[in-house]
C-alpha cells in the first residue's frame, strides 16, 4: 500500500505528493521527489533527506525512518 507523503525539494516552488513504498530507501524517496520536480529544479547528485528536523540516513527505508501517511519530508542540497 503506497504511503502518500508531502515532499519539498529545495529550490522548488511547490510541495508535491509523493507515493512511497514502505521498503523504499530514503535515497529512492529523494530520487522520486527530484524526478517529480525536474521540470522546475535541476537534479543534484548530493542531497540530504530531512524528516522531523533531522537529517536521515538515506540507506534506511521509509518504514525504518518512521515516515507515515501525510508526513512532510524535505530533500535539500548537501
Amino acid at each position: 500500500m503506497p504511503i502518500p507523503l508531502y515532499g519539498f525539494l529545495q529550490g522548488d516552488t511547490i510541495g508535491l505528493l509523493i507515493l512511497a513504498e514502505e521498503n523504499d530507501t530514503l535515497q529512492t524517496l529523494a530520487r522520486k521527489l527530484q524526478d517529480a520536480a525536474s521540470l522546475r529544479v535541476a537534479g543534484r547528485k548530493q542531497v540530504r533527506v530531512v524528516y522531523n528536523h533531522k537529517t536521515m540516513d538515506t540507506a534506511i527505508t521509509v518504514a525504518q525512518a518512521g515516515l507515515q501517511a501525510l508526513d512532510r519530508f524535505d530533500v535539500i542540497a548537501g
Partner: peptide, 28 residues
C-alpha cells in the same frame, strides 16, 4: 508540465507554495 500531484493548504486551499524556494513554510 508537472506530472506529480501538486499539494494544497488545508486552510486557504491554495498550493503549498509559501516561503521561498530555499525553504517552503508548509507545516503539518
Amino acid at each position: 508540465h508537472g506530472t506529480a500531484m501538486p499539494t494544497f493548504c488545508d486552510l486557504c486551499q491554495l498550493p503549498l507554495s509559501a516561503g521561498t524556494p530555499r525553504h517552503n513554510t508548509a507545516r503539518v
